[in-house]
Design a protein around this nucleic acid. Structure first.
Lengths: 129, 129
DNA sequence: CCAAAACATAACGTTAACGTAATGTTTTTA
DNA sequence: TAAAAACATTACGTTAACGTTATGTTTTGG
């Protein structure tokens, strides 16, 4: 248990599937595990730490592309200040987007009620008896 | 101009593209245009009317699958009562779903604000000086 | 040393409603 | 009658983040 591990241990400790690890490698979220020749890949503790950090950021609802934009900062700047500042920007964007969405849905909701009312009145007028 | 038309006239009058007409045929939203042998398709005024009705229902934000569930009623029952009753049911479902979505986004919004606050406080504490 | 794990790679599936080529055939018009 | 429209058909692309086969290779345990 020195830090060198294969994908099985990595995924178990990180709580993800091998598919996820390979997908993250493919989009550059984590570095590709080193391999000797053509065989299996070996991962380090830092990759594990990255996976855990990714998981944290996903809980903040960052997309993988957004995570990719900030993840390196966490490992370049140990204080975490820069990373958190950047995440904060993203979170504020999300807030604006969510507000936008909520307004959109509320608008739609109002239209819906309007339609519903119209239908109800139309059916009422048709049915008296 | 007797009611028999090819796809060009149909789409122009209905305000849709040929792709849309063929797609609707493929999912059974409108009857397939009749063809003589192997050549082109011919459509009727009723198909045009269906396309226009579909357009109306889309404006109520019904999905094509939902439209498929009610569209026939409009042409079977000329009074429109049954169709509108069924649409009303769908609209009420949508209302419930939208309310659900709004609540979800509001929940997310609250969490977001919470996260943002936390980040802000953390950064404040780190930076004094 | 061989069977059983573990691993690697490729590729399709998931949502909705068409847009957009690409290619070939039919109808219209000059 | 030949070029120009119009039409038909097929099939990939669009979003996000992997899940799920399917198939083949490597490593490990007894």
């Amino acid at each position: 248990m020195n830090g060198r591990m294969r994908i099985g241990e990595l995924t178990e400790r990180a709580g993800v599937t091998p598919r996820t690890v390979r997908y993250y490698e493919s989009i550059g979220l984590i570095p590709p595990g080193e391999r000797e020749g053509q065989g299996q890949h070996y991962y380090t503790e830092e990759t594990l730490a990255r996976l855990r950090k990714i998981d944290q950021l996903k809980k903040l609802r960052l997309g993988l592309d957004e995570i990719r934009d900030v993840i390196d900062l966490y490992f370049i700047d140990p204080s975490g200040v820069q990373a958190k500042q950047k995440v904060l920007v993203v979170l504020r964007q999300h807030l604006a987007e969510v507000d936008q969405k909520i307004r959109g849905y509320q608008q739609f909701r109002a239209e819906l009620e309007d339609h519903i009312e119209r239908f109800e009145r139309w059916l009422e007028e048709k049915k008296p008896r």
